[in-house]
């Protein structure tokens, strides 16, 4: 069973990125259970997790949100590459946070970035949670899908 603390670690990794990098905290929306495959936004950063738990954690955000985020970070390059970099950094932060909190229990991959569709490999006992991440008027999603 996934524990609240584990979920919170991932959530905190995500929100802290906004708070620190853009100096504007993100809040979390109403969390819910994933049914079927997740609907992703344009850009998705993924970390694979193995060890004590198996599965993926991803941060998926719409282009509009990333654009504003980049502006807040005083970035003026809004290219496809920069967007990918950005979700990659968010995923990186989530992974760093998890490594700090879970230590050796979790083996966490280097983040990868997807733009477009994605399939979560179905595993027995996989639990999937969607946590909306609200920032300014935008909304992204943190998808935690772990055994």
């Amino acid at each position: 069973m996934l524990h609240e603390q584990e979920l919170k670690t991932f959530v905190e990794g995500t929100t802290s990125f906004f708070e620190v990098a853009a100096q504007q905290p993100a809040s979390i929306g109403s969390p819910y259970l994933l049914e079927g495959t997740p609907a992703v936004h344009e850009y998705t950063g993924i970390i694979n997790i193995s060890g004590k738990r198996e599965g993926v954690v991803m941060f998926t955000a719409p282009k509009a949100m990333l654009t504003v985020l980049l502006m807040k970070m005083q970035e003026n390059d809004f290219s496809h590459e920069t967007m990918r970099d950005l979700v990659g950094e968010v995923a990186n932060t989530i992974s760093g946070n998890a490594r700090r909190d879970f230590g050796r229990e979790f083996v966490i991959s280097v983040p990868s970035v997807l733009s477009g569709q994605l399939k979560i490999p179905q595993k027995p006992g996989l639990r999937s949670f969607i946590i909306p991440i609200n920032w300014r008027s935008h909304s992204a999603k943190l998808v935690v899908s772990l055994t």
Binding site: A21, E75, D77, L86
Partner: peptide, 12 residues
């Protein structure tokens, strides 16, 4: 490896 981070460090 991230352009954003490189530029952030550069800028700040």
């Amino acid at each position: 490896d991230s352009n954003i981070m490189r530029r952030r460090i550069e800028r700040s």
